[in-house]
């Protein structure tokens, strides 16, 4: 094995991917650590993965459906919100944890080399058990309150994968920005709070005027959540706008990877 160390400015994509592959065990180990630590010394442990989305769903359905009278198209309002919440909760958890992942590991970053992208990426992995639990719980709710299934339901895992990619992309961006400008520590929680309302969790964009609907789809999570509703409940899907969401997601992912790589280079000097 030969290592050449020099000041090369470019990014060798193939080498980078190979390196990430070589470090895959560390990714799992870091994710395991985060998961383990999250529930260490908690009484309810992973049951929190059920309580949190359920309470949020009840609250949201109360505000949006009871008070603001948003239409759920005959679907049980709590179930309706739950299907949006599972993707949103996962996403916001990953972004929250991911944004601070580099700063919290600064001691490690200064003392040893490993691909730094593993830190935000491991947060996406560590949040998966919670996601799985909330999906299982939602399935039970779904089976009880819904009896009109179609084969479209087979697409459900695809949308979950898209939610995971969205979580990784955004946290790569924010963690790198957070290194450059510590202001993002304040911006991110605020952005997530706003995201909770501009993402169609307890409502659908079908109710929004068609001229303005595209604005919602600039948010990749809108595409993901409307997709989930389409495959579970057969709600109307705006495929062109979904395409827009996915293009934006792909752009965020690719640019995030490049930007992260740029920041990563002298991270030990500036962190």
């Amino acid at each position: 094995m030969k290592t050449i160390i020099q000041n090369n400015r470019g990014l060798n994509f193939k080498e980078k991917i190979q390196e990430l592959y070589d470090y895959r065990e560390l990714l799992w180990t870091l994710a395991y650590r985060d998961f383990k630590v999250k529930y260490a010394q908690t009484f309810l442990g992973i049951i929190w993965g059920v309580i949190e989305p359920l309470l949020t769903a009840i609250l949201l359905s109360f505000v949006f459906n009871r008070i603001a009278k948003a239409n759920t198209f005959g679907i049980n309002p709590v179930l309706f919100s739950l299907t949006g919440i599972i993707a949103w909760n996962y996403f916001s958890n990953v972004v929250n944890q991911g944004t601070n992942s580099l700063i919290l590991a600064q001691n490690m970053i200064k003392k040893i080399y490993f691909p730094r992208i593993l830190l935000p990426a491991s947060k996406a992995l560590a949040a998966l058990p919670d996601l799985l639990i909330s999906i299982l719980f939602t399935s039970v709710y779904y089976l009880v309150y819904w009896n009109d299934f179609s084969a479209d339901i087979l697409f459900f895992p695809l949308f979950i994968v898209l939610a995971i990619i969205a979580g990784i992309s955004i946290s790569i961006w924010f963690s790198a920005l957070n290194i450059r400008y510590r202001d993002f520590r304040h911006i991110v929680p605020f952005a997530i709070r706003i995201g909770l309302f501009v993402t169609p969790i307890a409502y659908t964009t079908n109710e929004v005027s068609p001229d303005l609907r595209w604005i919602f789809f600039l948010n990749p999570l809108t595409g993901v959540i409307e997709g989930i509703r389409w495959c579970l409940f057969g709600l109307e899907m705006h495929w062109k706008l979904f395409g827009l969401s996915m293009i934006i997601l792909a752009l965020l992912f690719i640019t995030g990877f490049y930007f992260f790589n740029k920041v990563e280079k002298n991270i030990a000097d500036v962190i």
Partner: peptide, 9 residues
């Protein structure tokens, strides 16, 4: 490889 050199290799 924790930090990079400005020049040389």
């Amino acid at each position: 490889k924790i930090t990079f050199p400005t020049s040389g290799k």
